[in-house]
Amino acid sequence: MKAAPPEPDVPVVVGVDGSEAALRAVDWAADEAALRGAPLRLVYASRWDRYEGAALARDLEGPPERVHAVEIVDSAARRARRRRTGPRLAVLTVPEEPEYALVRESRAAALLVTGTRGRGGLAEALLGSVSLTVAGHTHCPMTVVRPGHDHRTRPHGRVVVGVGDGPATAAAVRFAAEEARRRGAVLEAVRAWRQPARETPDTPLAAGEHLRGAHEPRAAEVLDKALGEVPAGVVTHRRTAEGHIRTVLADASYAADLLVVGAERRHRPAGHLGRVAHGVLHRSACPVAIVPGPE
């Protein structure tokens, strides 16, 4: 696997909405753009035209929702400039549903970044309403900055990638390797395997132990193949773990700066992420990158 060539004119796009969660996403996106030497593009989308009439617009300097939008993007731009220098910052404010605007922006982006709001059930509900929808349709890799993530914490120096069986795994490993290279971090590739039932009417104990002994070496072989073309200079760790992949990756996220998973697109309904990506988006302790596979 060759290192991806730099694309300095392809922006990192971040969705903003005025929330603290979105500002954390701006922090992440600004740092990522600086690492890539890429422009940063702030996007605020809202259907304010649903609520503002022409008469109100004539009476005021501008519709309140439109004025509010300007305040939001200005605040986000000030936040971004505190984290990076240079004029390569653009803002876009559009009267459109945020899901549609962000998916469209992803067609010409190197990376799309969003945040989530709240914690627990509220976080899940809001994540599902925007970020999950966008993640299921994005045309470029997308990072979701999880609730509670704090950029002031000391980096772990580790990028974790989940290694699956589908074609999206190759894209996820490429992306994760590049992220590890940019950060000078270790790339940890994780492959989960499940222990078969110890004994069933169809699988006696001896056969079950034999099957278990075959699963872990097979997982190690899959890891070796997935990492076979990682560029020289990227330090890699391979880890097999018994258990469900969603649980294994969620546990690994507590010692990671970024968790990367592939999103399979073939043979699935449009916009369907799959259980692994959906699960880690809700449970990860660190930002999650969703890398779309071939359609």
Score class of each variant (00 low, 15 high):
K2Q: 12
D9S: 13
A29S: 06
A29M: 03
A33F: 12
R36E: 02
G37Y: 12
P39E: 00
L40H: 09
L42F: 01
G53F: 02
G53C: 06
P64H: 03
V67L: 00
E71Y: 09
I72F: 02
A76D: 10
A76N: 09
A80W: 01
V91S: 14
E96D: 08
Y100W: 15
E105W: 08
L111Q: 04
G118K: 10
G121C: 06
L126A: 01
S131E: 09
D150H: 11
V161H: 03
R174Y: 00
F175D: 07
E178S: 14
A180T: 04
A180D: 03
R183D: 02
V186Y: 04
A189F: 14
T203E: 05
E209R: 13
A214S: 10
D224P: 01
L227N: 03
L227T: 11
P231N: 05
T236R: 15
H244I: 10
R246N: 11
L249C: 08
A256N: 00
D257G: 07
L258D: 07
V260A: 15
A263I: 14
R268K: 05
A270T: 15
A270S: 12
L273A: 13
G274F: 05
L281S: 04
C286M: 06
A289S: 12
P294W: 04
E295I: 08
